[in-house]
Design a protein around this nucleic acid. Structure first.
Lengths: 134, 134
DNA sequence: CTACGAACTCAAGTCAACTTGAGGTCAAGC
DNA sequence: GCTTGACCTCAAGTTGACTTGAGTTCGTAG
């Protein structure tokens, strides 16, 4: 199985080498060894990086991502904890949906100040009422 | 109309005074004047803060939030730009949905390493394929 | 065998979004 | 009229996630 050096991982994943070294430092990914000085990566790291990218886009910190997918891509959380993470995501999704509806309303509402528009106020109350933690 | 000083705004919004001053510095909110040294805020600032909180939760930077809702709560973006923001949010929502499905699968899949599970791979490909920018 | 280029390490810098701390001001209650 | 507590300013510190730069080391092509 062919190994990749950092430049190739970077090219294929779009993640700069400096960030890859950083991810290794904090234990998110691992190289399988060295060729001289050079880190050698298993191609599977590309899938891990894709997961990491997804997690980042979802707003998780590197620490949280590391908790969910250990550095080998094996989930380190218990099933209930994973369900909980998914539930959190779903809550976040609903929140974004409310914000999206708010924006779309603002885009088409003719009121000069939205704070005076009853529909805006309703959407705001709705958005506020349902905001738990995260 | 009664004005609020910073402590009261903080208490009602949950945003610490230091952050409120910071928001004022960067032009996200404005006080209507001073009572002695003390900033006086219009109660409307609470609604603005709620909007700001929503934006933050949705992953927008303060700069982006400021672009969408000017410091008076009046949208400063054009309608098409607002639509575009909403479209971005919807894309983000779909992305989170894919990640949520991935997590729920991991939670119930018995495979030792998920990289070997075909359903996992399918969900990954799906998630990857549809990731644009943001 | 030597030169090149791609990697390496390690310390320091950067950016956003705040927080903390020191030292100062002021209005209201006693 | 004095104390107190809430606020003020300004500079510096903090955290996460990297980036940048200086100086170093290899493996490979010529």
């Amino acid at each position: 199985m062919k190994l990749l050096d950092i430049g190739e991982v970077s090219d294929r994943s779009g993640v700069p080498p400096s960030a890859l070294r950083y991810y290794e430092d904090v234990g998110l990914i691992a190289s399988v060894g060295r060729h001289g000085l050079r880190r050698q990566f298993d191609p599977q790291v590309l899938a891990q990086l894709a997961l990491i990218a997804m997690g980042r886009e979802a707003g998780f910190s590197l620490r949280e991502i590391g908790e969910v997918f250990g550095r080998d891509g094996r989930a380190s959380l218990s099933r209930p904890d994973l369900q909980k993470k998914a539930d959190e995501l779903d809550a976040q999704i609903r929140k974004l949906g409310r914000l999206s509806r708010l924006l779309r309303h603002v885009a088409e509402c003719p009121a000069p100040s939205h704070f005076e528009c009853p529909k805006f106020q309703k959407l705001m109350r709705l958005a506020l009422r349902n905001n738990g933690r995260r």
